[in-house]
Nucleic acid binder design. Structure first.
Lengths: 214, 214
DNA sequence: ACCGCCACTAAGCGCCCGCTCACCCTTGCC
DNA sequence: GGCAAGGGTGAGCGGGCGCTTAGTGGCGGT
């Protein structure tokens, strides 16, 4: 009876907050269509059709096609910030928290690949104002990961010379999962999350905790 | 007088092989436009305009807009395979060759970001036949990197449990450079190449050569 | 001088896009 | 039952899209 959290496909559903039911169905249809064909190649008729409505129905709930992308992008980025913030603020040393951040962030990109693709790769399709808003959220994402790495360096747990460069690389690695991951492939999102957490700990030269090398 | 190799911007120009001069100018204009706005958001009028021609001129040299993307994608992927093959077949141990492969691959993605963006991110805009052809080239790219890592594991230079997973991660890291790298940013392509080579050597647990960990 | 050749253009065809508008059902309140 | 509200539809608008076609201008060969 409470808000559903998962579909059978394993895709997370943070769309409970989208309030009129028809608006949510349209948004979900837009996510699917944008992920499959890209924003510019998707027609409003396609979105409405997937939601089982006429083309005009879209404009009752959204002013333009771009507003759909904007809403999707903002909700997705807020979720991303939340995931990383939770990991960053959890208990344990820098290594545990970095591993936690990477594995949960990767699980989100792999399991919710449809959503993550739109969120991470359609940013340039937004207008200047909307893009500026989203970029502010991205800076928060960067800051969370950089914070963990900085702390690990200070405490001596990590051995990193270029903190900002390593932060970019870690985030890049996680984000790009949305591009190549395939739900029908040989790995589960959990497995990729574990593998990537291990790889990232190696990248920062973590001295203990979960490194499990050799 | 010989074929130019670089522009002022530092963008490599492997387009010397595109033979009629007008066809090359159109292809270059298409690369720019596709990279800036994406394939579907780019109009044939825009491409022709950038090349200083009328919209119809495009169809003298290319059958369709998609043929432009196909040609760009194939030439770019062939260049990518060549870069990795050269590094993989060079002298030195697995660590040197892997570092060489990563740094040159990253340099290509960063310096030729315009081209690399189109090559790496517009694959889905191709039709089934063209996409299949490009995917074959991608498998060669994967095989080159996997080969180096396998050899390093066999020789004991690397400590990697999941060779295929690590290969995917290494390539993913390099490819995603084309998404975030900015020529006006604080790093040169060479610096990113060096940083990434170091990070990748850490990922594979390289025991010597270039690791330079404190 | 003449012509054939062909890269290139001006104009435009047919199509489908994002989006709008006039209208139609239900639903809930009195 | 009357009626306002609002989610939904069918038809269609203006426009820009990919691409075509008839014609043009300049150049090389004889």
């Amino acid at each position: 009876m409470s808000t559903a959290e998962e579909t059978a496909g394993g895709e997370a559903q943070p769309w409970g907050e989208v309030t009129p039911d028809a608006a949510r169905r349209l948004l979900l249809a837009a996510v699917e269509a944008f992920a499959e064909r890209g924003y510019h190649a998707t027609t409003t008729r396609d979105i409405a059709g997937r939601a089982g409505m006429s083309p005009a129905a879209l404009y009752i709930h959204y002013k333009t096609k771009e507003e759909l992308l904007h809403r999707i992008s903002r909700i997705g980025h807020e979720k991303a910030v939340e995931i990383l913030r939770t990991a960053a603020r959890s208990e344990g040393g820098p290594a545990e928290r970095l591993a936690d951040a990477v594995s949960s962030f990767v699980r989100w990109h792999a399991g919710g690949r449809t959503t993550a693709r739109v969120v991470q790769y359609e940013l340039d399709s937004l207008g200047p104002d909307a893009r500026a808003e989203i970029l502010a959220l991205r800076r928060q994402v960067d800051a969370e990961v950089r914070g963990i790495i900085e702390e690990g360096v200070r405490s001596g747990d990590f051995d990193v010379t270029d903190v900002q460069g390593t932060t970019v690389a870690v985030l890049s690695l996680c984000i790009d999962v949305a591009r190549w991951f395939n739900l029908d492939g040989p790995r589960t999102p959990e497995q990729v999350g574990e593998l990537y957490a291990d790889l990232v700990l190696r990248m920062v030269g973590a001295r203990r905790a979960g490194a499990a090398q050799r």
